[in-house]
Nucleic acid binder design. Structure first.
Length: 276
DNA sequence: CTAAGTGTTGAAAC
DNA sequence: AGTTTCAACACTTA
């Protein structure tokens, strides 16, 4: 489900639902969602208050009192929703945070890929996943020069490079296909062979599409819902993803779909230039 | 029945 | 030692 715009949308919709609430009890229906010590997760959270929710790339950082943070990654299909604590459990509800006011925050995940980690606030960089992340789009560190330098050491294809999060953190399969089409770069282009002026364009379009998608509250193509159960608005803006076999809006050539390192990849074989 | 799906990761191979 | 590939995770839907 979620790339950075969707996770940001979850953050914005979830925060007002849970801010200031105090955890009374935690239930792990499917304990594997929690990647850190299960006993600590169950024993340390009761009594803690939700102070804020931050986000880095696709990771939610739920800030709690007493210097604790729950790092939550939704992976493909994770969702949060607030219910009454006595509401019937859905088949795919896996973790529940019961609050002192009788409500409960439930984590629902059809594929059970999502993960939570309980850490000390401030130790995010030592946390599995977050440590190796590159910079976020639209951050002050994400400059054209940064992207040019970041791609220099990458000999693999640009599609895989943008998906691996080590240079730019937050893009996923949908937005990468859109951005490569917008900049006319073939997904199989070798990352370090793309001309600097094209990388500069890539930088600008990454910032642009992420900002546009956040504004429209994310993209729902499969199952994404925000914390209020609403779909996103950006899917109608997608020009490439999900449009295999349809004509490219620029040249009319039919979009093709190939597998690139195991990920479905749609592109225009006429517009998108391959750099090798 | 088979394949593919918004993502990450650890291990193996370069 | 850094980089890259790929199966695995678990379940639903086309």
């Amino acid at each position: 489900m979620p790339e950075m715009p969707e996770v940001e949308t979850v953050r914005r919709t979830l925060l007002p639902l849970v801010k200031g609430k105090t955890i009374k009890k935690v239930i792990l229906w499917y304990p594997k969602i929690v990647a850190t010590d299960h006993e600590k997760f169950l024993s340390e959270l009761p009594g803690k208050k939700i102070i804020d929710i931050d986000r880095y790339a696709k990771y939610l950082l739920i800030r709690l009192s007493d210097n604790l943070t729950i790092v939550s990654h939704l992976r493909m299909e994770g969702k949060y929703h607030l219910t009454a604590s006595d509401a019937p459990k859905d088949k795919h509800d896996h973790v529940e945070f019961v609050f002192t006011d009788g409500t409960a925050l439930r984590y629902n995940d059809v594929r059970k890929f999502g993960r939570m980690q309980l850490i000390l606030t401030g130790t995010e960089r030592q946390t599995t996943g977050i440590g190796k992340l590159g910079v976020e789009p639209n951050s002050s560190k994400f400059t054209s020069e940064y992207l040019i330098n970041g791609l220099k050491r990458k000999k693999k294809n640009i599609k895989n490079t943008l998906l691996d999060q080590s240079v730019v953190a937050g893009l996923g399969n949908i937005y990468v296909d859109e951005v490569l089409w917008r900049t006319k770069i073939h997904p199989l282009s070798q990352a370090n062979k793309i001309p600097v002026e094209k990388v500069s364009e890539l930088h600008d379009q990454i910032n642009k599409i992420i900002a546009e998608a956040i504004k429209l509250q994310g993209t729902t193509v499969h199952s994404f819902l925000n914390a209020n159960g609403q779909v996103g608005g950006f899917q109608s803006k997608l020009q490439v993803y999900g449009h295999v076999g349809e004509p490219c809006t620029v040249c009319g050539t039919k979009f093709e779909k190939i597998m690139v390192n195991g990920r479905g990849t749609t592109f225009c074989p006429h517009c998108q230039v391959i750099y090798k």
